[in-house]
């Protein structure tokens, strides 16, 4: 009786061919290597960006020059006075912003300056930075925001 109910096993092999596995992995690897932008700078200022509705995406990531404005991170976790950070250093002398942006525009005239400003920073400091950007003729700016939930 028992033999009667015995399952018929299919004669085919049940293995998945793994020979092409390294090729598939390599394809994925190359994709991520190409899309990766490694330089995610260490933030020296606290930035929590505000939400907005009318946001646009900026596709050309390589044109973007970030400027961070927010209360400085102090040793021990405190929040200091508002400061401006470009790349991985805090800019103490605001005239240096002009110099820096001027050089960035020489390298890439289509540069977009993305301002990542903390929500509690007073706009006075933002105006000071913007005046420097105007002097350097870096006129394309983006106020970085999150997308507001509708």
């Amino acid at each position: 009786m028992s033999a009667h109910f015995k399952k018929k096993s299919a004669g085919t092999k049940q293995e998945i061919p793994t020979a092409s596995m390294p090729d598939i992995i390599f394809m994925l690897l190359i994709f991520f290597m190409v899309t990766t932008v490694l330089r995610e700078t260490e933030l020296l200022v606290n930035v929590s960006i505000p939400p907005a509705e009318a946001v646009e995406k900026i596709d050309q990531k390589r044109l973007i020059q970030y400027v961070y404005i927010g209360p400085e991170k102090l040793e021990g976790g405190g929040r200091g006075d508002p400061a401006v950070q470009i790349d991985d250093a805090i800019v103490r002398d605001q005239a240096n912003i002009r110099q820096f942006m001027y050089r960035a525009l020489l390298d890439e005239p289509r540069t977009i300056v993305s301002l990542r400003v903390d929500r509690d920073v007073e706009t006075g400091l933002l105006y000071d930075v913007q005046q420097e950007l105007r002097e350097a003729e870096a006129l394309r700016v983006n106020y970085s925001t999150t997308r507001a939930a509708e």
């Binding site: 992995i25 994925l28 690897l29 991520f32 290597m33 899309t35 990766t36 932008v37 490694l38 995610e40 960006i49 907005a52 009318a54 946001v55 646009e56 995406k57 900026i58 596709d59 990531k61 973007i64 977009i112 993305s114 913007q130 950007l133 105007r134 002097e135 003729e137 870096a138 006129l139 394309r140 700016v141 983006n142 106020y143 970085s144 925001t145 999150t146 997308r147």
Partner: peptide
């Protein structure tokens, strides 16, 4: 190993925000 490294470090989402043109000096 390399794949996992790049998977973790990748940020695909582009920057978004309000685009403005500053007035010239």
């Amino acid at each position: 190993l390399l794949l996992i490294f790049f998977l973790v470090t990748t940020t695909i989402d582009a920057d978004k925000g309000i685009y403005m043109q500053l007035p010239p000096p």
